[in-house]
Design a protein around this nucleic acid. Structure first.
Length: 607
RNA sequence: GGACCUGUGGUGCAGCUCGGAGUGCACGCCGGCCUGUCAAGCCGGAGGUCGCGGGUUCAAAUCCCGUCAGGUCCGCCA
């Protein structure tokens, strides 16, 4: 039906007779003797020249037969990949007429997302969407190749699974043959892949669809895709090595121009330096500890267990209204307050020399915090409502520990350790954050997550990961007395401030598992009821195993430079879980409900 | 469950503070002209439940209340 793709024609094709198929992207008629048709297929656009007028409209599907030639002198179009050539002497066959599209098939026009989704089949013709989906396919291919290289075996696991009440709300599927009983769609293949390990698969992976009935976000859909993997007779470092290989291979395959690197830090360090367990390492503004500086402070606002700060480079221009808004924002985030210090030059030009001369006597003597203070801090002064309450030592401490220079802004939160860091971490991202397409690809492994996060209403610790996560061997003896101080062999992968995935070493010994269930307040009966099939499997020879899951939608979105994963999913749903294209979710006919043994008792949408 | 933003011809926006005739801009669409354009150009034209419902008012796109939809975020996502 066709000899070439539109976007591939170059000067090397000149002289060839070609037949192309595609959509009419654009049509320019010059009277009855000359017309141009920009013909588009997935590969790109090429200009076709018709001698005479043609009866085609935008988005008609046509076949064009003609001869490739160099464009006449001065008419080449450098903005087009095929812009050096054109197809001439064209005869046009209409394969399919088209109504005028609801919006232009063009990356440059912005269209409301619900309209795009209702006409997703048109939206997908846009180069941006074509590029995103093809990029995604190449990521999948690179990942599969990496996993095969590492000896992993791709296995598919069921979508119709058993209810295993866990963290996320599950989607239920009624059983036609067993009225009143339900399958659920898996939140992840977590339990299945552990069974595969007991089954001796040794190394499993899958590009798996996961389903969670939780509220959606820019980076969350009901259905999403994970690179899911599990391996036997391995430890944390082995898993991290394989996953690192896979994601770096994916990054190199589709974004070779963006430097990609992976580093590793503990959960504790991440919280301390970035105020979050998903740090964005593309920029500095790390959290600085000023607690020691204010140990003896007379400033009541700074009398707190922890005093933390971030330096906003160039932030001294921030106006009062904006600063007030930041303070209010910090309070909304849970801080008792936010102090700001604009860092200004010490003095005007004529007094600079005097400042220079005064420095040595003032600096080290006054602060006792090291000789580097004078050099760093001497040329700056602080502008803040709190400034006059500060001691000289505190002034210097703020400047030197944050490494501030004139023109910067320093934000300080005094609170307990956790609040101070997380509030500053949030402010750091807001004030310094880069766009998703900007900068390098800074992967980070965050290891040594706590085993439990807080306690529930019954006073039982809440598992931070899932209940089969192995406690850190060094903390095993604390499991009973100090559960909240126990670290887990659990690790997250973070990319540019997005959580990409998490994994853990699993418990394969019955006694450890019993102790963890006990710590979680899960009785033996409850454990048997919820995970009985897995526990039974473990009694028949469970290898030590560990695994991981990478959120592919997020990875692809970042690699594609998209803020929302909807842009890298062919048919996503809206935030309320609807699909404007298909009308899902939709009611079922009464006969179907009857067959399923389902009676609808209430209709919240008032139908 | 909650907060905020948005909703105006097919598309994107302005108009809304300070109420006065559906007023405007760009694109698209339809017709005409045009032999080298390329988001072609020029001329003409059609196209509207101002998301929906209620209220205030002599008068509502505009003010108020409610509601629906889309988005962003909090909660939630072991």
């Amino acid at each position: 039906m066709r000899t070439h793709r539109c976007g591939e024609l170059r000067s090397s094709h000149v002289g060839m007779s070609v037949r192309l198929c595609g959509w009419v992207a654009r049509r320019r008629e010059h009277g009855e003797h000359l017309a141009f048709i920009d013909l588009r297929d997935h590969s790109g656009v090429v200009q076709c020249v018709v001698d005479g007028s043609v009866d085609v409209r935008s988005e008609y599907v046509i076949a064009v037969s003609g001869v490739v030639r160099d464009r006449p002198e001065g008419t080449a179009n450098p903005r087009l990949a095929t812009g050096a050539v054109e197809v001439t002497d064209c005869s046009v066959e209409v394969l399919s007429a088209a109504e005028p599209p609801p919006f232009l098939v063009d990356d440059r026009v912005e269209v409301d997302e619900s309209v795009r989704l209702r006409y997703r089949f048109i939206d997908l013709r846009r180069p941006r969407m074509q590029a995103n989906l093809r990029l995604r396919a190449r990521v999948n291919a690179a990942i599969r190749a990496a996993m095969e290289r590492h000896g992993f075996c791709e296995v598919e696991t069921p979508l119709l699974w058993a209810p295993t009440p866990e963290g996320a709300r599950e989607f239920a599927v009624p059983s036609r043959l067993h009225h009143g009983s339900f399958y659920v769609l898996p939140q992840s293949p977590q339990l299945a892949k552990q069974l595969l390990m007991v089954g001796g698969l040794d190394r499993y992976y899958q590009i798996a669809r996961c389903l969670r009935d939780e509220d959606q976000r820019a980076d969350r859909q009901y259905e999403f895709t994970q690179l899911d993997l599990e391996a036997s007779f391995v430890g944390q470092d082995d898993i991290m090595g394989v996953v690192s290989d896979a994601v770096i291979a994916a990054a190199r395959a589709v974004a070779p121009d963006r430097p990609a690197m992976i580093e590793r830090m503990t959960w504790e360090q991440a919280r301390e330096r970035f105020g979050t367990d998903k740090p964005d390492l593309r920029f500095g503004m790390e959290i600085v500890d000023l607690t020691a500086v204010f140990e003896q402070t007379a400033v009541r606002a700074f009398a707190a267990p922890a005093v933390k700060a971030i330096r906003v480079p160039g932030g001294a221009e921030t106006g009062r209204a904006r600063l007030d808004a930041l303070v209010a924002h910090a309070k909304r985030l849970g801080a008792s307050g936010l102090a700001w210090f604009r860092v200004l030059p010490a003095a005007s030009a004529e007094t600079a020399e005097a400042e220079e001369a005064a420095k040595p006597s003032e600096g080290p003597g006054a602060t006792g915090a090291g000789p580097e203070l004078a050099a760093d801090a001497g040329a700056a002064r602080l502008d803040s409502p709190l400034e006059r309450f500060l001691s000289a030592q505190e002034r210097h401490g703020i400047l030197s520990r944050t490494g501030s220079r004139p023109g910067d802004l320093v934000l300080v939160v005094a609170d307990d350790q956790h609040v101070a860091c997380s509030v500053l971490g949030a402010l750091r991202t807001e004030l310094g954050g880069l766009g998703v397409a900007e900068g390098p690809l800074r992967f980070a492994w965050v290891v040594d997550f706590p085993m439990f996060e807080g306690v529930d209403e019954a006073g039982n610790p809440v598992a931070a990961h899932h209940p089969f996560t192995m406690p850190h061997p060094e903390d095993l003896e604390k499991l009973e007395e100090d559960p909240l101080g126990v670290r887990a062999l659990a690790y997250d992968l973070v990319l540019n401030g997005w959580e990409l995935g998490s994994g853990s070493v699993r418990i394969h010994k019955a006694d450890v598992q019993r102790r963890v269930f006990a710590a979680l307040g899960i009785s033996e009966e409850a454990a048997e009821r919820r995970f009985g099939f897995l526990l039974r499997a473990f009694r028949f020879g469970a290898p030590p195993h560990a695994g991981f899951a990478v959120g592919l939608d997020r990875l692809v979105a970042i690699l594609a430079g998209e803020e929302a994963i909807r842009e890298v999913i062919a048919f996503p749903k809206t935030q309320s879980g609807a699909d404007p294209l298909t009308g899902a979710p939709a009611e079922l006919p009464p006969s179907t409900l009857a067959e399923l043994g389902i009676r609808v008792v209430a209709n919240r949408s008032g139908g």
